[in-house]
Design a protein around this nucleic acid. Structure first.
Lengths: 200, 200, 200, 200
DNA sequence: TATGAATGAGGCTTCATTCAT
DNA sequence: CATGAATGAAGCCTCATTCAT
């Protein structure tokens, strides 16, 4: 509201951006508060004016990731057009995001590691994937209502679709040589076409 | 004359087992050498008689994982029977291993994190997934020779299959509530049936 | 805005002084970083804000010693008056410094030890003695030009003069009972008078 | 006496030789018991059958050095011929020993460091130099009795002569490029000729 | 609000010494 | 006597966090 507020929020974001960049490139474990401060162009102590701790920065990075992910999935669920096409579009979206900003995406490996102990850590990737599965399941239900699916499509298929997406993403993260965008169509073919009701 | 008798190889394995257990439950970053020593029932300094450093233990864990993984894929590639059935068996194997020893499997998130900088780290998950893709691609080629595949199956499909497998695995790791074994059939349906040549 | 104000150079010097004191009294090998910090009245970790490592402190001590040594020798070489008198003054200077601050001087034994492997160690006493020999040789050349020397005075005599100086110093260091200052005249008599051109 | 005794003494000497070699080349601080054992061709634990501790090995090295030094000086004091010639011979002996076995001689820098705290350490270089000064003083007294000295030669001259010897030795140790043997004559000229009674 | 010097707990690793065989 | 695996105390160094300015 007040101009100060704006500054503060902007500064928070700058710091988070710096942190994410470094977490992605060197990993959370190897990223020092000094590094983040330097990257953000501020003094080390100032970081603590905006974030309570180093862990809080990872958590913030997680929240940003979660928001972005939720946004993509929500758009697919609530968008216009046939459900299966929206699902296909979702696959493209995810991989396009990855391809466009491959480096920042590498932060995910640290998010996975941080979400190991679901109780203690505020980084809860289980929830993210749960949401993703729910969204895909909803899309499948919509497609079913539209009469687009063959019989026998279950919840587990949503898990497999999310798995294929994340599994391809994982391979791309770990092996920068892989062409993320090119994988969208194969994923769609493999995961979606098999579920489609055969054209009469 | 006869020095204290110990099976160095066995002791090495004990220590590695202890380390893997802890890496899996608390994470590599949170696991102290003292913890490992205590878990293995030896003194802290003794760990260094068998491993050069804490990192070396993670590397050893990786090698063990890699060997196990390679073994499963090799068996599928070189086994008897129709290629597509061997591929289906492979999917079951991977998920059964995960289900049987879910906790130790959680070490993978640290292996992903450790393989971030492919040059510096000896933990090279890219190679593991490269091998996995090659194995699946080989199985697809075999299936094609057997006339079991529809036309248009490419290398990328191998990536998608490996992705679906690893992506389901990832979800299981992150969300212990998911039933790993039950995912095998959906994966097979989604990933393999769509590639099969339609029965004439 | 105005950060905590400290004179970093002064703090560096304080730490070095503390380190030298301890190196001298207990020896480098027996001196802990904690000891140095305590002596300097700061926390252990703070030492590392000013010096990269324990070795760096010994190196700094060496540089200080080298500078002081070079200063004494330079002053003798470039000073006014007959060269042989400047040489005699040099002998007095060296021993006076030793007598005045005998304890700190004991750091030299560690400098000798540290300069053992000339390639790896930045502590290069060989260079210090080389410089000392060069300075004395220059003084002898000057004395020769002044016609003050007998014939046959060679480079090796510079080595012997430096040797007598350092050898007396060594004895004083090792045996605190020896009276450093009293040795100046005997050194001068023995080392310099024998080189003087007999009065015609 | 018993054959065992002979073996034991021989083994002790082997270990000491190995230790001295390593102390000389890497320094006492950098020499591990494992290194010594390996160099001596025995197991690490066996070192302790012959020496009580690592420090005891340095002490033994010191004793050997002290014995050798005492031997050289004693021979000069008790030998035949004019005292000044025996003193000159002594200078040659010391430098010849250094030249012949320059590497092992480097152990002296560690002996100096170890004798820092004269009370606690059994390595007592002060005593060695005290003995050396006493021996040279005795030689000067003998020379005086023989009427070979000019008037006014004092105890301090012995200190200077020992100093010149040790100081040259120090320079040779620290700077392997210096020709030890060539320094004998200059030392003799500088240190002894000046003390000689002028030929009538 | 911003700074950056200071802190000190904590981790990894080394290595002299011991001791069961 | 000999071995070498095991021990564990100790030291160096790092770095998240604090706080005086």
């Amino acid at each position: 509201m007040s101009p100060r507020k704006v500054d503060k929020a902007a500064r928070r974001k700058e710091i988070l951006t710096a942190a994410v960049k470094l977490f992605a490139s060197k990993g959370f474990a190897a990223t020092r508060i000094d590094d983040i401060a330097a990257e953000a162009g501020i003094a080390k102590g100032s970081v603590y004016l905006y974030y309570d701790s180093r862990d809080a920065l990872l958590e913030a990075a997680f929240e940003a990731y979660r928001a972005m992910s939720a946004d993509i999935f929500d758009r697919a669920v609530n968008g216009p057009g046939p459900a299966l096409e929206r699902l296909a579009g979702l696959v493209h979206s995810v991989l396009d995001v990855l391809a466009a900003r491959r480096e920042p995406a590498r932060i995910m490996v640290d998010l996975w590691a941080a979400s190991r102990d679901a109780e203690k850590s505020p980084v809860d990737m289980a929830a993210v994937y749960g949401d993703a599965r729910a969204a895909v399941a909803e899309l499948l239900r919509q497609a079913d209502k539209e009469g687009a699916l063959r019989a026998g499509v279950s919840e587990h298929h949503a898990t497999v679709i999310v798995g294929a997406l994340e599994g391809c993403l994982l391979q791309c993260l770990v092996d920068p040589g892989l062409p993320a965008t090119e994988l969208a169509e194969p994923i769609i073919q493999v995961c979606l076409e098999g579920l489609r009701r055969p054209a009469a």
